[in-house]
Design a protein around this nucleic acid. Structure first.
Lengths: 211, 211
DNA sequence: TAGATTGTTAATCGATTAACAATC
DNA sequence: TAGATTGTTAATCGATTAACAATC
């Protein structure tokens, strides 16, 4: 039942994966799972799985294993998914549209409260039920709504300016897709860069290895 | 000048990042850089940087540092970026369009040779200069063109079927975006899943920590 | 009780960092 | 030559795995 307070990033990054698997088991109505079964399904070792869960407390029962819905709920709680952090998305191009249309925000702990663009062509239109607002009005929007996270889907040239502006307006975290190869740096802000370029180059390397 | 043949994935995953930084230095006309300078700019330790480069050979010169264009070229060579692996993209929805329009394929070591969809509405149309082909014709396309990598941008329900089909047709690698939370498993295939969901949940966790 | 499986400690493995001799 | 910086070995650190006592 001990509870580490400095859980390593290696563990944290595995949590969403556990959550995905356990949600699926839950959905199928499974009630019970052992670290051994999970290890076979997920490709981690049983030992690692027990270690990971024990960073947060003893969720299992000797001789039985883990209760699926309970474990699932615990991980959901640890991830803080019930909190619905308010977020905005900047850039209603194809990538922005794909994310607005297909990201299950609420299931991931977020609430999308605004979509912004600076192009007259799209402002005022709707994507997946969200009206596209003018980026020019974003300061007053922040004053009244206080979003904490911004998803950036804007062109390369615009990233730096926009992230600076949003940071000044008090945004706490960025999820940056914008042009695949920038590294955002803002003191105190949480930045998650989705480096598509890097991941594709890694793929290139691995293909090259095979000749 | 020793050359490890089993370079760890931790090192490989840093290579694209080195490449991005060095390309930028190159572009600016810098000719020389030391591991110390790089460490300050990139946030790795100088020691790690030297270790990393030395997995592949001695690219530097004592007392001088590294020659920027040369080092950059070496990493490009290691990553195999000049090889232009043929790839196809499946699914010409918003995500597919964003990727076709904005991924600098050639710079990343790939050549996009076909875009496929199964919707009559988009087949025959063009996105960023690429004609959208019918998914039904993909088998014959494979026979004549032999792509090695497939980018999946299709709905969740379609992922499994499509990946099975392409694997049977001889595809060697998948870059799977399709619905953010599937884990593709094909024996022998190289699979790179872009888990947007997971990355967003990690962000949620970190935001929750801050209250 | 016997069997199963956790929680937890100890051992191993691998990756990062420090140190320094080699050398430009 | 003196100063700088690599290449490389050794030390440290952290993460994973193994082992097993606790206990359901």
């Amino acid at each position: 039942m001990q509870k580490k307070d400095n859980v390593s990033m290696s563990v944290i990054r595995r949590l969403p994966r556990y959550y995905r698997f356990l949600s699926e088991l839950c959905r199928r109505g499974e009630t019970r799972v052992s670290s051994k079964e999970l290890s076979e399904k997920m490709g981690f070792t049983a030992s690692q799985i027990r270690q990971d869960f024990n960073c947060f407390g003893g969720f299992g029962q000797q001789g039985y294993g883990y209760n699926v819905p309970q474990l699932c709920a615990e991980i959901e709680r640890i991830l803080g998914i019930q909190q619905l952090h308010k977020c905005v998305l900047i850039g209603a191009g194809n990538l922005g549209k794909a994310i607005v249309g297909h990201m299950p925000f609420v299931q991931l702990g977020f609430e999308l409260i605004g979509v912004f663009d600076n192009s007259k062509r799209v402002i005022g239109g709707k994507i997946s039920g969200h009206e596209v607002l003018s980026y020019e009005s974003i300061a007053s929007f922040f004053e009244s709504h206080h979003p904490v996270m911004a998803i950036l889907c804007v062109p390369r040239e615009a990233v730096e300016t926009i992230s600076d502006e949003l940071y000044a307006l008090g945004i706490k975290a960025f999820w940056n897709f914008s042009h695949y190869d920038i590294t955002l740096k803002h003191p105190d802000a949480i930045v998650e860069n989705v480096h598509m370029n890097d991941s594709m180059m890694t793929l290139c390397y691995r293909l090259s290895l095979e000749e």
